[in-house]
Design a protein around this nucleic acid. Sequence first.
DNA 1: TCCATATATGTTATCGATAACATATTGGAG
DNA 2: CTCCAATATGTTATCGATAACATATATGGA
Lengths: 332, 332
Amino acid sequence: MMDVARTAGVSTMTVSRALKDGSSIADATRKRIMRAIDELGYVLDQSAGSLSSKRTGFVAVLIPSINNSNFADTARGLSDALEGTGLQILLGYTDYSIEKEETLIESMLRRRPEAVVVTGGKHTPKGRRFLENAGIPVVEMWDLPTKPVRHVVGFSNAEAEEGLVKFLYKKGYRKIAFIGGTTNRDTRGADRRLGYERGMAAMGLKETRVISFGTPPITMKQGGEALSKLVDVWPEVEAAICVSDLSAFGAVTECLRRGLAIPSRIAIAGFGDFEISSCSFPSITTVGVNCYQIGYQTGALLKRAIEGERSGKSIAAETILTDYAVIPREST
Amino acid sequence: MMDVARTAGVSTMTVSRALKDGSSIADATRKRIMRAIDELGYVLDQSAGSLSSKRTGFVAVLIPSINNSNFADTARGLSDALEGTGLQILLGYTDYSIEKEETLIESMLRRRPEAVVVTGGKHTPKGRRFLENAGIPVVEMWDLPTKPVRHVVGFSNAEAEEGLVKFLYKKGYRKIAFIGGTTNRDTRGADRRLGYERGMAAMGLKETRVISFGTPPITMKQGGEALSKLVDVWPEVEAAICVSDLSAFGAVTECLRRGLAIPSRIAIAGFGDFEISSCSFPSITTVGVNCYQIGYQTGALLKRAIEGERSGKSIAAETILTDYAVIPREST
DNA sequence: TCCATATATGTTATCGATAACATATTGGAG
DNA sequence: CTCCAATATGTTATCGATAACATATATGGA
């Protein structure tokens, strides 16, 4: 920067100002500086700048997996919402593990982000402490934690899934099964199973049928295998709710291969409104959860929260509920 | 850090050493320091550290889109390869635009990454200059640029697609069409079209049939619409090669809806070996390109390159070819 | 026993920018 | 023509760690 300053015949402070908008600087000077920058091929060193200004421009975002179009959509929404703010996302993958989340939170905090976004409301004790003492805005998204750290953007997976059970009940289905992952690592998956059970109970259906198959995230193939198991174990089953659209699609394909008519012999429903559920043949009934919106709303909230911190006025804790809805399609 | 040092009764330098492995420090001292850190809830400030050590631990990675499982897989491969190295990925989305890429490169360079990875070999002049003068290892992945900036990890999309045309030819198909995006923003898509044309020419098939539909990335739905258009315009068509598996799946679904038998009435092929191509019914013939491997190899290369820079010995430019293969399935 | 080497810790200067404050310049109202 | 406020620029100290060098202590072989 000193080289640039010398070339342009100004002080480094003026160069610094020229590179930041909103500073008072003469047009001619700015042009001269820009020419010098171009000439010398100078690129601002933001790491030095953030040390001094205490603004890194980072936002840490932890999602379970990048290979899941739901979270990818959320990341895109977040990214779009932060476009033009100069805030940059530091993305981390927890691989559905809260232990890995803890490690990631610490390594992220070392970068001094201006806010942290985590997926879900379940953390290790130490992880939670990190979040609470970080001194920056924290957003938990995708779930509705009973005891949020601070801000929340999401919806109740259980409630949404319960709605799906009720929808199927109204359509006349009674022997409804649930296909999900084996472990409880995926809290959203566990929540959906809970919703299934609640829904069944609410409709007075005593007999629940749950097939657990594979560790999250459940793939298409595993959805197919789970369906095989399901019809072997409970041949009388009339409908299968899958923990996500991917597994639902796998189940649908398996039905096609086995010659099981959808929905007359067996109905299939998914979760998440992935593109595949609308494009599949038959198309798949699902719960649309507006992943992009979760990300976008989180981004918008972050902007306000960070602005608040910068001006010294922290904003109050917010809980933003995103909407969801059963989307009826050909498969039920 | 001074607080920690005082609490543990050592100097800040010793605290700094305790937090870095590979430094000589007495076990008792390290434990004492760790206790102080825990007690005070101290979190290392890496931005200050990188300013001093000139090692940010960042790697900038630019991909066209996060909502594409191919690139998501590559990102995962990269992430896995860098696991445990302390290198953190700064991910950016170019949205298939080299102008946006240019902007991103500059804003990434301001963070002083230790290496840059870009997708594809086409850049704006300024973007290319940034890469050339960055003074850090540069990797272009997914394509084989004619004039690489430095390292390359990828394969020839054209060659791969040409192989697919030849495969279909051997199977007896002659009237082969190509379904892709309208613009040339997606250089890999353009490359694949080129491969289609070359393949047709090589097989002595004069009549090419190309349907352009939508801007990249082409969705499933657009694949279906493109297929409709295709059979309207050229009812005699025997096979359709789609620019990616997503559009191929859309085309397959559209065929099912229209009652066009696959592959007897029309054969469908995709590109990329997405999970959906193997799970779909009928399953879809595609070109497996090992996206994860591209990412993983890139990561491994980065480790060596960065290690080289740190020890003052830059490694020579490398070009790593990843493999691909036609995967025959039910749809052809 | 003694010195050479390895190990453990401290001191000082510095990384490259920006905040905070100080100063110079400009433009227009009176 | 003043003079004040707004605008433009400069000076100095500092952000929080680590590199480089200096020093102290332990270890072990001749």
